[in-house]
Nucleic acid binder design. Sequence first.
DNA 1: ATGACTCAGGAACTGAGA
Length: 262
Amino acid sequence: MRIATWNVNSIRQRLDHAVRWLKEAEPDVVCLQEIKCQDEAFPREAFEAIGYNVEVHGQKGFNGVALLSKLPLEDVTRGLPGDEGDVQSRFIEAVVSAKGMAVRVCCLYLPNGNPPETEKYPYKLGFMRRLHALAANRLQNEEAFILAGDFNVIPTTDDAADPAAWVHDALFLPPTRTAFRDLIHLGLTDAVRATTDSAKVYSFWDYQAGAWQRDLGIRIDHLLLSPQAADRLIAAGVDKHVRGWEKPSDHVPVWVDLSIAA
DNA sequence: ATGACTCAGGAACTGAGA
């Protein structure tokens, strides 16, 4: 079973890319972020036409997440628990099952947090605390689950081409990285890092200043596996070439293959 | 040295992104 995450930076602007990539990569489950539309504006028919079930948690103009799956999406919930006042659409999860093996797939779009001196940064750290609580709770069930999405976290200096450029940025500030480490230390596996020691594995390149052409990327899109999912990890990767397509998203798809018959 | 680009909303620009 292949499970992927991709921040598409507007699903309506990226529909052709999304369909092209789905046909090429053939993922079973896809977590989308920054769809930037309300539920009724999501182009669900285009995905249903190529065999995907669709669940959307949209928002006007900004944010928004969605799940695509060749398998039925069961037990769907929207919104990250822990803050009734959070109106931003940044979390959707569902369970997919294959041959008796169930995997809960949690699709998240973690807040950017910049500028750090504003209320945006505490909101980011609060979101990370809520995610930590969710993961700790889920781990007690000893079931396969995966946290997949745009975390807006550069975990280590190895995950940025130019780490010095990010030292004052909400994606790389010590409290951000500490919160990410605390999440990992619950017992989750960063799938890409578990399968490669290579430097220069990035998932985002800024549109500005020729960042793509100069390979000035950062790795901020992650797939974190529970122990029961990590036991089934076969491979993980980044579909970097998609960044070279015409009018691309600034993020590329990241995926894992788990040894679960789909 | 600085800015660099792309999106939504809504009709010229601003805010947001990272």
